[in-house]
């Protein structure tokens, strides 16, 4: 009985954790930037890439898609985010950047 209880508690605690945040649609946020990204193969790949892109100063939100092989990010009004910064984040996520789409 005790092992089963511990196992169920453990599973329930992990299952209760929330998933990746959706990007905000704050109207004050600036340009939408999109890149092709290769190497994502399931929804579990999104979060790691999004976390690294969100570390770039000036990035307001980020959303990756393994289905579309794409990363979309919103840059804060007046902020400057270079392609190199985004490429570096994609590389650190162990993915490969393709063309810039927007």
């Amino acid at each position: 009985m005790r092992p089963t209880l511990i196992a169920i508690t453990c599973l329930a605690l992990l299952a209760g954790c929330s998933s990746a945040p959706e990007p905000s649609s704050d109207p004050q946020v600036g340009a939408l930037v999109e890149f092709e990204v290769f190497g994502m193969d399931c929804p579990g790949c999104h979060g790691g890439l999004e976390n690294l892109v969100l570390e770039i100063p000036g990035v307001h939100s980020a959303k990756a898609s393994w289905v579309d092989k794409k990363l979309a990010l919103r840059v804060e009004e007046g902020a400057e985010v270079t392609d190199e910064q985004v490429h570096d984040a994609i590389n650190r996520a162990n993915f490969t950047a393709g063309e810039r789409l927007k």
Partner: peptide, 8 residues
């Protein structure tokens, strides 16, 4: 089953 950052 994968949903976001969670896999069962």
């Amino acid at each position: 089953y994968t949903r976001g950052d969670l896999i069962i």
